[in-house]
């Protein structure tokens, strides 16, 4: 009987792990030396003045990106690169009051379409078509404007009577560009 139960459990485990094949996203912490050398040489001038530096590798089955998170002048930055070391974008965590008043009103007007909402986190996103990644990083860290500025708002909204997390991307003027559902970490193992 016990043997049959064990075989049953093993079959279920095998089936559930196969069912995930092909859409696996994976983020893992890596060491600095595991980054492409182009990223290390680009970031080195900033790393010496930064705190709480972490390096991550993200894989989604199709592409690989590298992310560096650090604290610079008491602000939390996420800097994303592709495998060749080309800068994709830079995000910095900001407070509501740091957003232009008209942009904030436009964002809140959009969020008011939900019956209730709570803003969890706001990130200012910088990107550039410039091939010179160092120039972009210099402009961001010296608080000069980059080519493109967007706002990524992590928000919890009440939708059809249920609370759901979203990551919504707004333009510099507060127009919604993208909306993505947040799949939060399951809490069943900590609740019961």
């Amino acid at each position: 009987m016990i043997r049959q139960i064990l075989i049953g459990v093993l079959i279920i485990l095998r089936l559930t792990s196969f069912s995930q094949a092909g859409k696996d996203e994976r983020e893992s912490r890596i060491k600095k030396q595991d980054l492409p050398t182009a990223i290390i040489s680009l970031l080195d001038p900033y790393l010496s003045k930064s705190k709480h530096i972490r390096f991550y590798k993200e894989e989604d089955g199709k592409s690989i990106t590298f992310e560096v998170k650090l604290t610079w002048n008491k602000k939390r930055y996420s800097i994303e690169f592709d495998t060749l070391g080309v800068l994709q974008d830079v995000e910095v965590v900001i407070k509501e009051r740091e957003i232009d008043q008209n942009t904030l009103i436009a964002i809140k007007n959009h969020l008011s379409s939900f019956s209730k909402y709570r803003i969890i986190k706001i990130q200012k996103q910088y990107s550039s078509k410039l091939e010179n990644s160092r120039k972009l990083l210099d402009s961001i860290f010296s608080k000069e404007a980059a080519d493109t500025i967007r706002f990524e708002v992590e928000v919890s909204v009440k939708e059809n009577g249920n609370w759901q997390g979203y990551e919504i991307l707004y333009s510099e003027r507060g127009a919604m560009l993208l909306k993505r559902k947040i799949i939060s970490r399951s809490s069943d193992f900590i609740l019961y």
Partner: peptide, 22 residues
Amino acid sequence: FSLDFPLSGERLDNREFYLISS
């Protein structure tokens, strides 16, 4: 009172371990 966190990276992905204490 309990806490939990992934043991690899900031996000808990498939085929990863987590730690839980209470």
